[in-house]
């Protein structure tokens, strides 16, 4: 049998079941849901505190988080994000499935071949996504995976709205193109 780690991809069902089981483990053993965006919030808060030490007193955020026992820290969730980077890099490296393109064909056809435009759009879109994720107190991992499988109403609402908004955005930006890039 071929080493699964050197395969380019697994069945989405296998990957999905794996994520589900890993999610049980994360909640059951580590008492921490699979989530990504909280670590970004904590990093931003810690950076703010490092640059402006009095922010801890003047910014209500820190008091609210301390009261909830969720003060920003380099914790398990933060290392989880670092691990995702390591694991995904390792997986793509072992399977030789690494993308070096700055500009996907689909983007190029619609918006042209300018790398700065593509990178700037990706940067601002990423910032917008992060703003939305923290406004919702979770992202596609925290709400979409961890919250949904705990049958949290907020997560089901988030996932439905996020999917609808993303579909409308993508269809407006790209249209339902005839060319298949997938």
């Amino acid at each position: 049998m071929k080493n699964p780690l050197t395969m380019k991809s697994w069945s989405p069902y296998v990957a999905g079941i794996g994520i589900g089981v890993l999610s049980w483990f994360a909640l059951g053993v580590a008492n921490n849901p699979l989530g990504i965006s909280t670590a970004f919030e904590h990093t931003a808060a810690l950076a703010e505190k490092a640059v402006v030490p009095q922010a801890e007193q003047t910014n209500e955020y820190f008091a609210q988080k301390a009261e909830a026992g969720k003060s920003p820290k380099i914790g398990l969730g933060w290392m989880l994000v670092a691990g995702v980077f390591v694991g995904a890099s390792l997986s793509s490296w072992l399977s030789g499935d690494r993308s070096t393109e700055n500009i996907p064909a689909m983007w190029r056809e619609r918006f042209g071949g300018s790398a700065p435009l593509r990178l700037a759009a990706a940067f601002f879109a990423g910032a917008l996504m992060m703003f939305g994720a923290r406004l919702a107190d979770g992202c596609t991992s925290g709400h979409g995976i961890s919250g949904s499988l705990q049958v949290a109403v907020s997560s089901w609402v988030f996932t439905a709205v996020f999917f609808a908004a993303a579909t409308v955005t993508a269809l407006v930006l790209y249209g339902r193109t005839e060319t298949s890039y997938v």
């Binding site: 395969m7 697994w10 990957a15 994520i19 994000v81 691990g83 997986s91």
Partner: peptide
């Protein structure tokens, strides 16, 4: 946990 999650996300494409 993160490394496993990253592998699953990459293999799941």
């Amino acid at each position: 946990i993160g490394i496993l999650f990253g592998i699953l996300l990459q293999k799941g494409r």
